[in-house]
Design a binder for these strands. Structure first.
Lengths: 231, 231
DNA sequence: CCTATTAATTGACATTTGTTAAGCGGTCGC
DNA sequence: GCGACCGCTTAACAAATGTCAATTAATAGG
């Protein structure tokens, strides 16, 4: 593994306070691997064998039942999936695929669990990480149950624009179909949602979205810190 | 606290392996209190001050934004809420109210966090509990995004019938409006969903629901272990 | 037992979302 | 440079869901 990759992983909240030797052993047991776009990294219903860390690129977590499929989450550097299944030694509830060329660190489930037992600092970090994952998912559930498609898109755009530096414009970093699935709608519906938001000053040219009237958009979206903000 | 209440709490996976003294201290710091129906126990956006354990009765976790409201979960004996907010010392993302006369144990957040630091067994149990909470929520999210109302109801009924002893009948233990909110629909829509399921042998008389053709119902519901079964 | 109140159901209608099909526009490989 | 492909958009229609109003059923109090 490159030294700079180890460094960024070391800085993750999950690993920051892990004892030096335990971290070294954990990393040593792992595999750092590059994947082309579209590779399925894990499959729902498979026994959880690795904790995955996205070092570069993007991973999409998705799931299906009864012939339908949806996107649960997009994981970017430096983020991980799926801790819960690894810790409980159970099957994955979600699949994951790369959306672009990606660098993924795979830590054997057994090593992760061993580190958990060996290092209280890691255990503490795991508790915080899991609690955060749970809360993010609850936010998502609220978003989905309490808003319609256009409202979800509006809030998603506001959040993305903020994360990209509040320049009044957003670059959508994935295919729109993926955004649609992430927001719980069809691509056709996403187009309609964009059309709806045009009334509130949202201008789209391809993957680039501009806000010409932020206050109107915010008034429509009614962002709520208990739904839209990270902890 | 009555001795039998302490005993059932002791048997919870979360507390089962906690060291004796630590458990005693934690329980001692708590309050066991009886509430009439309809009492709001916690309010979203409030700082998490207590871990709540439902000893008797039922608590409804709900949340709202933009004037709308929905039910996230129903907690029955012996279950707890909301561990994640307590551990992270953050605000609740959900409110909770009693649906009936209930006995609730309230453990001060500070004591819970202290026990976490004091007892590795508790920390381990917390990890498993949180991982389970996360997975349950992911299942819920999949259910919501991948199924329509009638399908969600069908699977909910199948699960409830199983939990009540697989007698071919289900007693719905809460108001139907609550079931509707739990399943992400309006009460009117729930009525329509029941009407749809009548085609598959679902007969309802008030709160009692009977299956006259289980295989037809299952064929319609297409239950999926990755969505519908507990871990 | 009766009445007042609330929940549940039903119907009509509006809105939202999904589906199907067509067309547009860009990209990639030949 | 051209054609095939793919993603996105648009339109028309269908299905699902929400809303409003009225009625019926269930429940609790007096």
């Amino acid at each position: 593994m490159r030294i700079e990759d180890a460094a960024v992983i070391r800085e993750l909240p999950l690993f920051r306070n892990v004892e030096h030797g335990a971290f070294a052993r954990l990393i040593d047991a792992g595999f750092l691997q590059r994947f082309p776009p579209g590779v399925v990294l894990i499959q729902e219903s498979d026994r959880a064998d690795f904790l995955h860390v996205v070092v570069e690129g993007t991973a999409e977590l998705f799931a299906g039942t009864g012939g339908r499929e949806t996107t649960i989450e997009l994981v970017r550097p430096v983020g991980l999936f799926i801790l819960a299944a690894v810790l409980r030694d159970q099957v994955y509830l979600q699949s994951a695929r790369t959306l672009e060329r990606s660098l993924i660190l795979m830590l054997p489930a057994e090593s992760v669990r061993a580190t958990l037992e060996a290092d209280p600092a890691f255990m503490r970090a795991v508790v915080m990480e899991l609690a955060g994952d749970y809360r993010r998912t609850i936010r998502d559930l609220k978003n989905l149950k309490l808003r319609n498609g256009a409202e979800r898109l509006a809030n998603w755009l506001i959040r993305a624009e903020l994360e990209q530096g509040a320049t009044g414009a957003v670059e959508i970093p994935v295919e729109k179909r993926t955004v649609a699935a992430r927001l719980g709608m069809t691509p056709e519906n996403l187009s309609r949602a964009f059309a709806t938001l045009a009334e509130y000053g949202v201008r789209t040219k391809g993957a680039r979205v501009e806000f010409t009237d932020r206050s109107a958009l915010v008034a429509y979206a009614k962002p709520d810190p208990l739904v839209d903000l990270p902890d």
